[in-house]
Structures are given as C-alpha cells and as structure tokens.
C-alpha cells in the first residue's frame, strides 16, 4: 500500500524523500511559501509554510513526509500566524508598492493579498538600505530583500556561479555580492542567469523591463497566488522556470 499523510483531513499520497510541501504541491494543495521553489534545495527561512504536524509547528518545505502524519494547514491560527509573519517581512524592509516595478508580479505582495493582509500591525522599521544600480542590465534594491536566498541558491545550483550570499544576523542581515568592490557590476552575473530572475520580490530587477506589462494586468492583479503556484508546478513538472520568468519571457515573445 502506498504511503499517505492527511492535510486538513484530506488523504495525500507521497513517495519516500518528499517533504510535506512536495506532497502537498503534487496533490494540488497550496501551502503558502516564499523562500521555496521546487527545483532548489529547501532553505526553511521564511516560515510562511508553517503547518501543524501531529500537533507541532513545522516548516512544510523542509519537513519530510512520513506515513500517517496528521497535518493542519488552513486553520485560522496558522493563517493568523502567517499574516503576522508577512507583516513582519513588510515592516523590516521598505516596501512602497506604489513605486515598485514589481508590484502585481511580486510574490511577497501576492501572499499578503492571499492572506487578506490589510495593514502592517507592527511599527515600521524604515531601515537604511542601498540600491545597487551599477550593473548594466540588472539592479538590486536592498530595500525589498527578504533574505529568502533564492538568488544565492539559483546562482550556485543553476548558473554554476556564486554571485550572491547573505551576511550578518538579525537586523544586520544583508545580501552581499561576490566582488571586492561590493558592486554587482564587478561580479560575473549575466542577465540570462536564473539568479537574475528568481527573486520573489522587487529586490532584483531587470532594467528597462519593469513597465512592459501595465499595472492592473499583472500576474496577481486578478489571480491568487495559490492558483498561480499550483498551475506552475502542475503544468511544468520539472519546473525549470520560476513563474515570474515564464511570464516575462512569454511577454517578450509577443512584443518588442
């Protein structure tokens, strides 16, 4: 007999080696996540995927599925926790969505919309963060980095480079690039690298592409992130591209 867990009472089969997130995604069950992309080693840092496994909170993206686990996902308590976590992500950075090129295509914002987050709850940090616009084609706006390390992992695991790293701890945590000068232009990052396209937020942006799709017609303007995320994992089992890149490329085909 094949092995199975239950998520909110629904039986979900899994194979050995799968995490709770893997099993859920394969079965079309959305568990909110930001630092996870199926094709990269899980990192377990954003805690948005927190679920209750046999009564204990665990990160679904790192926790292995085991036969008979009783997993709670869509409880009010977990939804409230996730909303608080998302609010913390917002107040720890500087997220002025009306002036952000990523608005409407941003997974942080989309998760917040999905959770019906209407306010920030906490006092704002307004941390001092820089913009690195030195590279000819790619820019980093550190104000919007949530330290998910997807760019770090994409650079190492897909691009065979080592352009990004996260340095420091707590409120001093920050994204660094692999160059003596500390500037993106002095790294070997190329615009075709997956690391340049993987960022779930507006922290890494491709220059001169930000407004090709008008605000109001963007991915999450009309579709919720659960639909988008499940469609992306379902229709492309190898999930070679993150959804954001797939959409960007799709658009370039039709246009300029």
């Amino acid at each position: 007999m094949s092995k199975a867990i239950t998520i909110d009472g629904k039986t979900i089969p899994f194979e050995d080696g799968q995490t709770i997130m893997d099993a859920a995604m394969a079965a079309g069950v959305y568990i909110p996540h930001l630092c996870h992309q199926p094709e990269f080693t899980p990192h377990g840092s954003c805690k948005l995927c927190t679920v209750k496994v046999n009564g204990r909170n665990c990160s679904a993206c790192t926790y292995p599925a085991m036969d008979g686990q009783d997993v709670l996902n869509e409880t009010q308590e977990l939804i409230d926790d996730r909303k608080k976590i998302t609010q913390m992500l917002f107040v720890e950075g500087n997220h002025f969505c009306p002036s952000c090129e990523k608005t409407g295509n941003c997974q942080l914002q989309a998760v917040a919309y999905h959770l019906n987050m209407l306010d920030n709850h906490f006092p704002l940090f307004y941390p001092d963060r820089e913009v690195d616009a030195s590279h000819a084609e790619v820019m980093i706006d550190h104000n919007r980095c949530i330290f998910c390390t997807l760019c770090v992992r994409a650079s190492q695991q897909k691009d065979g480079k080592d352009v990004f790293a996260v340095s420091g701890r707590g409120i001093h945590k920050h994204l660094i690039v692999n160059a003596q000068s500390g500037l993106l232009k002095d790294t070997d990052l190329e615009v075709t690298d997956q690391a340049a396209h993987i960022c779930p937020t507006g922290a890494i942006l491709i220059k001169r592409t930000g407004y090709q799709v008008p605000i109001g017609e963007r991915i999450y303007d009309h579709k919720q992130i659960d639909q988008v995320s499940l469609a992306a994992s379902g229709s492309r089992p190898d999930a070679a591209f993150p959804p954001s890149l797939a959409v960007e490329t799709e658009h370039l085909k039709h246009g300029e």
Binding site: F90, V91, N94, H95, F96, C97, P98, S99, L118, D119, N120, L124, Y126, D128
Partner: peptide, 18 residues
C-alpha cells in the same frame, strides 16, 4: 479608518525618512 498606503505605512512621503 486608515485610508490608503500613506496612512498605512507612511507611503511615498516616508521615503524621506532616510
């Protein structure tokens, strides 16, 4: 009621905070 981005997180005027 807090109405709009600026009431909620300071909005674009708060970009002077740095």
């Amino acid at each position: 009621v807090a109405v709009g981005a600026c009431a909620i997180n300071g909005g674009l005027p708060a970009m002077r905070n740095h």
